[in-house]
Design a protein around this nucleic acid. Structure first.
Lengths: 214, 214
DNA sequence: TTTAAAATATTAACACTGTTAATTATATTT
DNA sequence: AAATATAATTAACAGTGTTAATATTTTAAA
């Protein structure tokens, strides 16, 4: 009996420390950005030796991947309530706005999840077949577009092509904005009064267009 | 007379070495990707000391910026011939395809130009007002969309919002593809026969939609 | 032509990075 | 209490960008 107790106690300690490492990594990440996550800094903040981290994660990209997963959990809980929006086109619009919202409010996470190559390559290598967190997000879009089609929207368009197209458009808007590629272009080429809401206007254009092709 | 000769000779040498540094940086970049550009490797390959590079570029991000500029020159020459396409909507389609073509064929450059934050932040800091290379590219899109509007396309849409929307969509497609965020989603959710050409199908959807709203 | 000055390049060093092998300390089991 | 398994550490390797101080080379003036 005491044997299993100590065993589970040790197991708990292992899990605690593993979580603590992730927690500190997240803290560094949110405070000073991706670049400032370092094995040594994490170790210092916890008060352990850098090499101890390698007993809990196989390498740095494994720690990054754990953060990546956290991000997808955050996104899915951000999306959860939208399942209650019955009218599919309304739901699609809301999903688009929520996605942009998430990207703006969690820019570091968004970069990790949808822009950087490292973490997704880690997924492709280690979880080649199933990757639930990522799959669920796209599945939600797919279902909503299918619902739209069932109600008569996007009649002539292919379900999968359409879904990918919607994702690509909204990701494009977020990506250009977050990575700083919009400011210069907007400042140089847009009339002053249109500069502020360029992001929203691009999104509105998408919605306007989606409505038009009904 | 000999004074100006030696002066210009020295100037030429300075420019030669500056170009040589960029050339070697580009070589490393194209052969082994962004990550493997290092001041020390560049110096080794030329046969100079690492610190010499700091006499020609203010720091590493300055070297990267020079590569960034090269990329925009490449893109503009890739686009140049399209000015001869008279029908504006045909031109817009061709621009889209050419853009995707450029992204696929020069993925490292595309990442540098439209995905990474560092180089564009260097532009924003050092060339806050004018940045010709980048401006010209968006200007070409803006003009083409304006031409389309003049011919009766996109009547109800705003010129700037529409242009930004088109760029964002195509960038979104390229970005998701190049950064490896498409493979997993497509493999998991697309019917097998549609997996191969998912990129083209998303683009075709855009074109289909743009036609529909005429 | 020799000397002073300016331009160019180098060495040494700092403060970091991820990661591995060998070693020590701690806890568990016999 | 001794042997074993687990956990954590130190030391080291091979890199990174960057700066200050020093040495070398080239140019200009006496």
């Amino acid at each position: 009996m005491s044997e299993t107790n100590t065993k589970s106690r040790r197991l708990k300690h292992k899990e605690d420390l593993k979580r603590k490492i992730l927690e500190v990594a997240k803290e560094l990440f949110l405070k000073h950005g991706y670049e400032s996550i370092s094995i040594r800094k994490i170790a210092d903040k916890i008060g352990i030796s850098p090499t101890t981290i390698y007993l809990y994660y196989q390498d740095k990209s494994d720690v990054i991947y754990a953060l990546h997963q956290e991000g997808f959990k955050m996104l899915s809980s951000h999306f959860a309530v939208l399942r209650n929006v019955e009218e599919p086109f309304e739901r699609l619009k809301a999903m688009g706005r929520s996605y942009i919202e998430f990207a703006i409010e969690n820019r570091d996470f968004y970069e990790l999840m949808f822009i950087m190559r490292e973490p997704i390559e880690f997924v492709n290598k280690n979880y080649a077949c199933e990757w639930e967190e990522g799959g669920a997000a796209f599945e939600a879009l797919l279902v909503t577009v299918a619902d739209c089609k069932a109600k008569g929207y996007f009649k002539q368009a292919d379900l999968h092509a359409m879904s990918l197209y919607v994702w690509a458009t909204i990701h494009g808007i977020c990506s250009l904005k977050l990575q700083g590629h919009l400011d210069h272009v907007v400042n140089a080429h847009f009339p002053e009064k249109e500069q502020q809401l360029s992001l929203e206007k691009a999104f509105d254009t998408l919605i306007f267009i989606l409505k038009s092709i009904q």
